[in-house]
Computed example of a mutant assay.
Amino acid sequence: MKATVYKGNGTFSVIDKKLEAPKSDEVRIKVAYTGVCGTDVHIYHGMMDKRVAIPQTIGHEMSGTIDAIGENVSEYSIGEKVVVRPLDDRMVKASDKGYNHICADLKFIGIDSPGSMQQYWNVPAFVLHKLKPETDLKLAALIEPLSVAVHDVKLSGLVSGETAVVLGGGPIGLLVALVAKHAGANVIISEVNETRIKKAAEFGLQAVNPTKTDIVELVREQTEGRLADVVFEVAGVQPALDIMTELAGIRGRIVMVAIHGEKKPVDLFKFFWKELKLIGARVYEKEDYEKAIALITANELPFEKMITDVQPLSNIQQVFESIDKNPSGLKVLMDCQS
């Protein structure tokens, strides 16, 4: 079989690897497609070299079919279409309060252990989710990032008729906006990249450039002064932190989707003045995966527009180099069998 490995210093290689039988509690997946995630790009840039065991096969946004089954696995069959929820939470403790998806000793498969950018992938059976036979495996590779968006919207408490502002129109921002709109919200995206603003329009979403439009005044006009009920901070930059408390109306909820590795200034006075709530959001739970699968299966939203390119595994180095050169792109898929 063919597998890709990250070797450090912005370098990937394609290697020949022995096909391994699954352990007793594992299945072997014939990987169809693997999406390139922002975290994968961070790994490519060397930002996670202290965490990733080099050389390492990475990747976690995937779809595939079951190719072999361990002797103690009874709930799956060869040929079934599946996706992997890449969270190894077997080290859960009582102090984690039952929130296994954010347990203290959580291991992220594809980062802390080998991932899906290979033709065949052995994983514990408990991380699998079944797909319907008719599911498009290209779209199924979007289920992992879509689950992030489902989790974010769920935690926000968003209800139909509310106004949501999404700060950042990249892949996760667009997915959050789509899920929020599907839930009945009035959605406005704030994005500085003009290409992504045009892309949002293709999804039927309203997007504006905050450097050209006073987005606070725009939201105020569209809500008769109430401002946003929910603000999703997906951009991860200081200007987004500065404006999120301005955009939120009285008792508004701000969901922190972006990862901020360092302490940042935030206008805490606005939390006091308007009784705002700040909600942290990290990965997803099992129910979020099932909701994402249902959304993909229903085929009611234009998820196919998220996929901007499909490339074979052999082009992995060029794929990461091209992502750096094209920040306007959305989701690139690796075809793991071509």
Rank of each mutant, 00 (worst) to 15 (best):
Y6K: 08
G10S: 06
T11V: 09
V14T: 05
I15A: 04
D16E: 14
K17T: 12
E20K: 15
E20T: 13
A21H: 14
S24F: 12
D25Q: 12
D25Y: 14
E26R: 09
V27N: 00
I29E: 00
I29M: 02
A32K: 08
Y33P: 10
V36M: 10
T39Q: 09
V41C: 11
V41G: 09
I43D: 03
M47Y: 13
D49S: 10
K50W: 11
P55S: 09
I58S: 01
G59F: 00
H60Q: 03
M62W: 08
G64R: 03
I66Y: 06
G70Y: 01
E71P: 11
E71N: 13
N72D: 15
E75T: 13
E75R: 13
K81M: 04
V83E: 06
R85D: 12
D88A: 09
V92Y: 03
K93E: 15
S95N: 11
S95P: 06
K97Y: 11
N100E: 15
H101Q: 11
I102A: 09
D105R: 12
K107M: 14
I109F: 05
G110W: 00
I111D: 02
P114W: 04
P114Y: 03
V123Q: 06
A125K: 10
L128V: 00
L128Q: 00
H129W: 04
H129R: 08
H129A: 06
L137W: 02
K138R: 12
S147I: 01
V148M: 10
V150E: 11
E162R: 08
T163D: 04
A164K: 06
P171K: 06
P171A: 12
P171V: 05
I172N: 00
G173P: 00
L174G: 05
L175K: 08
A177M: 08
V179S: 00
V179T: 07
H182Q: 11
A183R: 13
A185H: 07
A185T: 07
R196K: 15
I197W: 00
A200V: 05
F203N: 04
G204C: 01
Q206D: 14
Q206A: 11
T213L: 07
Q222W: 03
Q222V: 06
T223P: 01
T223A: 01
T223K: 01
E224G: 10
G225V: 01
G225E: 05
G225D: 05
R226I: 05
L227M: 14
V230R: 03
E233T: 00
E233C: 01
A240C: 11
A240R: 02
M244R: 04
I250M: 14
G252M: 05
M256Q: 13
A258C: 07
I259A: 12
K263E: 15
K263D: 15
K264P: 11
P265S: 06
P265D: 09
V266G: 07
K270T: 08
F271G: 06
F271N: 04
A281E: 10
E285P: 12
E287M: 10
L301Y: 06
E304Q: 11
K305S: 07
M306T: 01
I307V: 04
I316E: 07
Q317V: 00
Q318D: 15
F320V: 03
D324I: 07
L330W: 06
K331V: 03
V332H: 14
D335P: 08
D335F: 02
